[in-house]
Structure formats: C-alpha cells, structure tokens
Design a binder for these strands. Structure first.
Length: 554
RNA sequence: UGACCCAUGGUGUAACGGUAGCACUACAGAUUUUGGUUCUGUCUGUUAAGGUUCGAAUCCUUAUGGGUCAACCA
C-alpha cells in the first residue's frame, strides 16, 4: 500500500531528525495540569502526542504539571487518566512534575551559583512595574546585586519556611531589556505555604511553569515537546535554561490549539459554566469535555478520527461542529443497533386489525452489519406514532401519514390513513387507518407502494422512558470572541427533556455504554448519571441527517 | 505604537519552484421498508502590490489583515 498521506509540520521535523540520526527514537509527553477536566482540545493534543509515538515507534509519557498546589487536585488526576485511556491511549510512564521538586531545587541552586539567579524581595506590583512594557525595557533593582552566598542562604531559608507567601521570589537573571517579556528576569520560584496533592507539606516553595516544564522534559529525555502557540515566547526561556543548566536538550514545537463553533474551549470558562450552574457538571453532555462527550454518546473512535482529520498546523482555526458530528454519525451508523422510539406520541388505531391480536415482527438490528441479526417487536392494532409524522393537509412532497395516504410501518404492514380525531382545541388526538394484510414486511404480496416509512410502538407493549435532546451550548459561533460576557450567549434551549417517550421493549436491556440508533430520530445512549433500573434516561448523541427538515426550511 | 507567530473555497487541511487536491458543509440527482446509509455530480479558493524565475500558493520586499506577549497561572 503506497497510501501517501501528507505529513504535518511536526511529522516533517521528526522524520528529518530521525533521518539525520539526531534521535534513535522519539519520546513525547502529554502534560496536563490537574486543575480541571480534559476537553476536546486536549484530545487533539493527546492524539497528536500519542499518535506520533505510535507512528514512529516511540513512547509517550503522561506527566502532570502539578506545580501550583492551590488549584490542583487528585480528583482531576483520576479523571484525566480515565479520559486518556478511554480515548484509547496508554502512556509509557506516569510522571509528575512534583516528582522532580528536589532536582528542580538543585537546578535553581546551580543557577544561583552561576550568578544567573537571585532572590528578589520586591512586591509583585514592584516587579511588574520594573518589568517595563513590551515597548519599554525593564530595569533591574538592587536585589539583583545580592551575593551568591546571600542568595544561597535566603533561598535555603525560603525552602525552610522562614518567609511568608509573596515576600520573596527567586528570579533568573536573563535580560531586562529583552523585547521578549519572559526573558526580563522571570520568576522561577515562589513561596506558597500550601498543601500539595502529592508532596503534602514537604515544600513551601514551588517552581513556576517555566522552571518546571522544560526541565521535566529534559529529565525524561523528551525529544519533541509539543505545545500550543501561546507558548512560542516561552521557547527562548526554555532553551536558555536548558543551555545554562547544561541538561538534555529537549525541543519545543508549537501548534495551533483547537477551537470549535458554538462552544468555548478554555478550562477557566468551562469551570465557570460548572460553578455558576449553567450546566450540571464537568461531564454534562453539552460540555466539550471528554467526559461530557462520553456521557453524550460520542465514541473514542469518532473523536480520534476527528482529531486526525482536522490536521496540525500553526494558524488559528475554528472548526465546524458539523465535522465532529460527521465522524460520530459515521462510526455509529456502522455500529449502533437500530431500535424504535416515539418521542412525541400520537395514537394510531388500525381499525381493521383483529381486536386484541398481537403479532411479533422481525426487524434487523443493523442493516450495515447483517451479522447482528434481528429482533422481535410486538405489533398490535393500537400504536404510538410520532406526532410529526401525521399532517392534516399534505403537500405532494409529504411521504408520511395524511388522510388518504399510504405509509409503511417499519418492519410491519402498510397502512392507509382513513381519518383522524380532534379534541375541542383542534389538537389531533388519534389517527385512524386500515392495514393491508398482504403487505407484511418480508412477505409483501400486496403490490402497494408506500413512499414513506415511519416508526411505531405498540401501545400495550410500550416502555416509558425519559429522553434528553441536546443542542449547541451557545447561540453564536465563537462566544469567546464576542463582545462582553461569553455567558450571555448561552443557548437557553440547549437541553430539552422529554419525560414521556415510548421505547420498544428490547431497549429495556440497554446498558450504559451501549449505542443505539432510534430509527429516524438519531443516535442515543443511556445517561450514566440519571438512568437507573426504574427510570431509563437516554441522551441524544446526535441527530440523523435530515434532508426533509432542510427541504421544509426552503 | 516594540518583538514574535500566522495568512489557500463557507470550514479545516494538502500541494516542499512545474495541472491548486482532499474532507466537511451547501446544492442537484440516483438508490432506499430509516426523507438515514450508499452512489453520482455541481458551486465556491491562493489577502494585496511589486520583485526573482522559462515558470511562483510556494522564494524575496513592502503593505494589509488576524493572533500572541507586560499572572508569585499553566
């Protein structure tokens, strides 16, 4: 197979490095901070990092960037591990930046000894003003002149807990006039008397990101450290520290993060959605989190395929939600078992069907996979059909039920609509029809052609269930880019709860994690949180494509 | 009014100096016991201006547009 798929720019770099003998094999890492749940943007990074290692025969570490104890928690560590595995990836090593605290401390000492770091007693405001602005160089203060011995002593005292939070910081001595603000003597250690989720109270000073991430990469021997665009300016510091510390030269490469229409993709914003009650939780099925998507019914494969298709580049992007939906439909169409469910019930009475008779109909579980066989569905003279499948006055384009029209009841008989009943408010309460006995599915000798096929549930056998329909979380394509508070663009109709839907009996065997196509309605899965033995709750993963709905909009 | 990054159809991504392709979307048609699936077809693109070259989306210059950077966050 000479399937030639073009390489993304990172793959080109890796192939060049491998060809030049720069590395014998590659080592990547996925480095989340355990301060929130993973979202689809992280999935892109996960697929990239693990995918690269898989493709080039390398390995990937899972490394938690846990250098800020006040925001981090083991709850997040557990969810992140679960999400990565659910996506289908296995890390070579589970590491934590906090594993390296002792080593990092030694690195800082080395920097002091080289005259490249100093303890600064300034307040954060003073440091900020002394830093200057992007257009004005910063100025170094008197603390930069401290002796090596003094710096070493104070830094040791900082570690020993002799100083209060915020009273002192350790700064790298780089270049206060650099046009790159990150090189203006960046803070590399700060005092935080806080309990760390792993090291407990062993430390009261913690390294900053810039003094932990690159060093951790280096310690692990990461060959290609891949991160998002906003870290581009950090690369100069990343390289400077590796050079001064004389450690393994990991290299950082940056790609554009994923953005998607009608949602937000920052942990901070997602946390707000949760904290302010706009959604149920981090795993609310409307959230773009991995856990939310899992609960909604997305499959790992659909997410991987999506990440594969969107590519990796350096330009800002805003991916259409429809692309993600395409991949779930593609996967679920092939794998989901077909079932019938009526979401908005309307009675259909077959007036010529023998009173009290029940027939068992056979219906394929999945036409795309004949090996999944068939199931039996009870049929009787009193059915529930979808209210939207009946129309009092139909146009020539209408294929469904209307007075005088003929439709196929899926996997059962063809019926002819003979009339309907209304209540005092003019609301249709019942549709009347006659069935054609010779038209039974599989042995149809009637010669009658029905243009439309509709789904149904035998009223006497119907099982009641709750069905939750989801729509886009926001009303605008890019809420983060709009004026004002992004939350003012929340779609108030993103969740519709249908309490009284009717489902076919076979669905009572549904288990969490099963995927179904409710014929003509979409793909559904059991809600892992709200569903229980006495009350089945289904989430709609995504609708089916609906050309009729499009036709109607014209 | 500094530095850095980026610029290809509606969206995303290829083409590595030699015919602008692929996917999604949209549209049209065929098939269909899901108005699903499948199949066929159609529309839409190199930000601009110069330059180098036999030849430029690609290299150079300038402009324009977008993004990033002044957290003891990552």
């Amino acid at each position: 197979m000479s399937e030639e798929k073009s390489l993304n720019f990172i793959e080109e770099i890796i192939e060049a490095d491998l060809a030049a003998g720069k590395h014998k094999s590659i080592l990547t890492r996925f480095p989340p901070e355990p301060n929130g749940y993973l979202h689809i943007g992280h999935a892109k990074s996960i697929c990239l990092n693990f995918g690269l290692a898989l493709k080039y025969g390398g390995a990937t570490n899972l490394r938690f960037d846990d250098t800020n104890p006040v925001t981090e928690d083991t709850e997040y560590v557990d969810s992140i591990k679960g999400d990565v595995q659910w996506l289908g990836f296995q890390w070579a090593n589970e590491f934590y930046a906090s594993d390296y605290f002792e080593q990092l401390y030694a690195f800082a000492v080395k920097l002091i000894e080289k005259g490249l770091a100093y303890v600064d007693d300034s307040t954060s405001e003073e440091i900020a003003t002394q830093k200057g602005t992007p257009t004005q160089p910063g100025v170094r203060n008197q603390y930069a002149e401290r002796s090596e011995a003094e710096n070493l002593q104070i830094f040791a005292d900082m570690r020993a807990g002799k100083y209060a939070d915020g009273s002192k910081v350790l700064r790298a001595k780089v270049d206060m006039a650099s046009p790159n603000m990150l090189l203006r003597d960046p803070i590399i250690y700060r005092i935080k008397h806080a309990h760390h989720h792993r090291t407990g109270d062993a430390w009261c000073i913690y390294p900053m990101y810039d003094f932990a991430h690159g060093q951790s990469d280096s310690i692990e021997g990461i060959t290609h450290s891949i991160c998002t665009l906003e870290f581009i300016p950090h690369r100069a510091l990343y390289d400077w520290l590796i050079e001064q510390l004389e450690i393994f030269p990991s290299h950082q490469y940056e790609f554009a993060r994923l953005n998607m229409t009608y949602t937000v993709m920052s942990k901070r914003k997602l946390l707000q959605m949760v904290n302010e009650g706009h959604v149920e939780s981090w795993d609310d099925p409307r959230m773009p989190t991995i856990s939310g998507m899992r609960r909604r019914g997305y499959t790992p494969k659909s997410i991987r395929d999506f990440c594969d298709r969107i590519g990796v580049a350096k330009r800002e992007n805003l991916i259409d939600l429809s692309l993600l939906e395409f991949f779930v439909r593609e996967d679920l169409n092939k794998t989901a078992l077909r079932r019938m469910a009526v979401l908005d019930p309307l009675a259909l009475e077959i007036t010529n069907y023998p009173e009290g008779q029940v027939d068992m109909m056979q219906s394929e579980n999945n036409p795309e996979m004949p090996e999944t066989g068939e199931r039996e569905i009870p049929f009787s003279g009193t059915l529930w059909i979808e209210r939207e499948d009946f129309m009092e006055e139909a146009s020539k384009k209408w294929f469904r039920l209307a007075p005088g029209s003929v439709v196929r009841l899926k996997s059962a008989y063809i019926v002819r609509c003979t009339g309907f009943e209304k209540d005092a408010d003019g609301r249709v309460t019942k549709v009347l029809a006659e069935y054609i006995p010779e038209s039974r599915s599989g042995s149809d000798t009637s010669g009658v052609h029905a243009k439309g096929t509709i789904h149904w549930i035998s009223a006497a056998h119907a099982v009641q269930a709750e069905v939750r329909l989801y729509d886009r979380l926001f009303k605008v394509e890019n809420p983060a880019a709009e004026e004002g508070d992004f939350k003012s663009y929340i779609n108030p109709d993103s969740l519709q709860v249908i309490e009284n839907a009717y489902i076919e009996p076979a669905l009572t065997a549904a288990k969490v994690g099963d995927h179904f196509q409710f014929i003509r309605k979409g793909y559904f899965t059991l809600d892992a949180v709200h569903s229980n033995a006495s009350k089945l709750v289904f989430n709609r993963t995504v609708t089916l494509k609906d050309n009729w709905a499009k036709e109607q909009k014209k």
